[in-house]
Design a binder for these strands. Sequence first.
RNA 1: GGGGAGAUUCCAGAGCGGUUAAAUGGGGCAGACUGUAAAUCUGUUGGCGUAGCCUUCGGAGGUUCGAAUCCUCCUCUCCCCA
Length: 376
Amino acid sequence: MKFRILDHDTASAARRGEILTDHGSIQTPVFMPVGTAGAVKALHINDLKDKLDAKIMLGNTYHLFLRPGLDVLSAAGGLHKFNGWDRAILTDSGGYQVFSLAGTRKIKEDGVIFQSHIDGSRHSFTPENTVDTQRIIGGDIIMALDECTPYPCDYDYASKSLDLTHRWLKRAWHHFQNTEPLYGHSQSFFPIVQGSVYGDLRMKSAEVIAETGAEGNAIGGLSVGEPAEMMYEMTEKVCAILPADKPRYLMGVGTPANLLECIALGIDMFDCVMPTRNGRNGMLFTSQGILNMKNEKWKNDHSPLDPEGTSFVDQAYSRAFVRHLFVAGEMLGPMIATVHNLGFYLNLMKEVREKITEGTFAGWKNVMVTKLQQRV
RNA sequence: GGGGAGAUUCCAGAGCGGUUAAAUGGGGCAGACUGUAAAUCUGUUGGCGUAGCCUUCGGAGGUUCGAAUCCUCCUCUCCCCA
């Protein structure tokens, strides 16, 4: 993987860059659609590629490990061959599941013992075996196993958890450097900053992560329920320490406004289930703001889904029709919403890149943040 | 023509003397969702001046301190036999 910065914004820490992987180049800032189980829900892989022109998608180690399992992925020759996506893939380590499946897991020094949400079977994730698993899945970028702490989280717990995440990182990094990719393309390893909402812990973590010398760095444990201002504050502190010549990836963020604010702080990469999940549940992010497609007010609104939208569904379908699909429980509704929302996010990132190159990003961002948060 | 069953809040359908503005499901309306246990979950759904009051369980009477619940008649549905 190679990263180079092409332009800097004049009035913020935003930058435009390019990541080169063996599965193509990625313009940053980038939003990466989440395809947990190897597929973006309600979306064809071909639409993700040809219609939306996404350059990278996510997969999840925990989910793919449980289903279809490593034997199948290995026999397929990795996830790229298995799902037919020939562009870049980033896999999460399962660290988020340490957080989201809190009821069915146990954290130990060695790693995490999980109970499968599918059949209750017990499995153990360690810093080492999650690297191995991600070698088998074959993502272009793979993540360190971390503990994503909840919010709120007391200082003592956050501090101890952070130390564990750092010890895990040391082991994972060592293992990563002593193992090889399996399918002929290179893989990059990203460590993850933790530290909850405590500035000193975040800064300490950022230093540890920066020292690792990985090709890119991630920030985790944010957007788990804390106020947005707190998230921005932590992001800003961390970005000041993480190396400027490497991509910074803010995990699990966020709303369109979140993205713009964090880009201004120096973030290059994002992923989030929001455009896909909320889309399936009827929430559309549009150039006019946020709208709930299920609301009665769209019943007879026969205007385009998003008059300023750039994806193919935006002019092709009316709000009235899409509302009808949601109300009737037709699966085409979630499918259209998914295309629209991802199209909106991806196009927003394209605009961001143009504004950074023009040097007008910061001012434009402030106008957009207000606009995009409005309820339509 | 004979015999039987039943009419409940938008719908279906409980309730069978007070704890019932009335279970439950559906539908409607609204909300939530941030490294996906999610095509999911939650709230709400007679009216109003909402710690209270008013109107409501086919219609009209009646019994009772009190009726969606018991009695009488009426109207209308459905099923079986001829």
